[in-house]
Nucleic acid binder design. Sequence first.
RNA 1: CGGGCUGUAGCGCAGAUGGUAGCGCGCUUCGUUCGGGACGAAGAGGCCGUGGGUUCAAAUCCCGCCAGCCCGACCA
Length: 421
Amino acid sequence: MRYSSNFAKTLKNAPADAETTNARLLQQAGFVDQLMAGVYSYLPLGLRVLRKIENIVREEMNTLGANEVLMPILHPKAIWEATGAWNNVDVLFKLQSRTGNEYAIGQSEEEVVTPLVMQRAQSYKQYPLAVYQIHWKYRDELRAKSGIMRGREFFMKDMYSFHTTQEDFERFYQNAKEAYLRIFSRLGLTAKVTEASGGNFSEKISYEFEVLTDAGEDVVYYCDACDFCVEDEIAKQKPGDTCPRCSKDVLHEAKAAEVGNVFDLGKKYGKDFDLSYTDEQGEKQYPIMGCYGIGISRVMGVIVEKYNDEKGMMWPKSVAPFAVHLVSIVGKNVDGTVAATAERLYDDLVVVGVEVLWDDREDVSAGAKFADADLIGIPLRLVVSEKTLAESEVEWKERSASEASRVSLAEIIEKVRSFQL
RNA sequence: CGGGCUGUAGCGCAGAUGGUAGCGCGCUUCGUUCGGGACGAAGAGGCCGUGGGUUCAAAUCCCGCCAGCCCGACCA
């Protein structure tokens, strides 16, 4: 992508009301635009990051063997009455049509997925199975906050699994947990599997995947010597207590952001809709269900919170909007060799599949381009200028490094390709 | 939903005691500059969040409402 074609350029002054780091940097760099509290547009650079995260999640869900679907956001009132949520869930957005009919805007999809699956999975032979989607969710939050980390509209992967036995659910949950840890690791995040309460409709414990960050809203007690972590709300321990799992360290207190969760839904939804399957003995049975969420847009905010410095964002390679930020400094170059070389390098990199953002602007100073590159935070910056071309070289500067180096034009393509790996 | 702060140009801000709006960035044009947010000149751009009130006169004073941010509560 040529930066000159990007309509959403960086801002020299960040919007003043964006106090949270992710809100400030994402808006200043032109990744997102706020429409109202908790509702954002994703601009070209931001959308690329969102899609990167989404695709990593999708790959791991597919590896788990789950079916991807896309379910509606606009729901009839009846399905939400069937589960009791219409009157009991206060974050549910409700609306009325001109004919007076009432609808809900999806804040979760158990009400849709349960009939969708159960009407088609009437034999025990079809189990276990899992279905997921990656789509927008809507919750009537009293207080949206922290940039894209707590929106009233947010992008989420939600998966639902269906089982004939509790043991099978536990087995699938373990696989899902491993997939989740792989996902967060690929995203550059360390997520702690955390015991939490089961919410309004589940007596059982749920598990949340928490990333330590002061921008988070949760408080957890965790152990450094093992992977024990518990939400303060349900903890039977206090900070400073010996770790109940390994006894090798004491528990530390920290703020954390919930980036994923798993709920044991039991047989509630099958019963609510009276949808069952037939088991081997010919008996009607309700399935045991699990629900697994990952807040894609929130994860994007958390990554910004974890990877930034005073100059801007520092995207991990796996989710960066582009792999390379190519900067051409034309300066006094009148014969056009700088621009021509930059364009050839851009084309050559694109041809071999490298995603390149080329700052091809000719009326912008070198300093401004560098400041923008630091703010946008692509992992590798390449500079082509008269200075580097005099040596037939390209300047190589990694966003996380303080020093730049040089690479010859002859080797640059190979070097970039190996850097990507 | 309770409390606090804030709404003036695309962004950041200034506009005491009321007299009809200004600066920086950005944008347009011209010239100079050309490796860490360059410089000069000339321009364009505002229903001062919104509704009411007080007043000869309101961005400014009073009341209501709306919106954004922060703290808290809430959070399938």
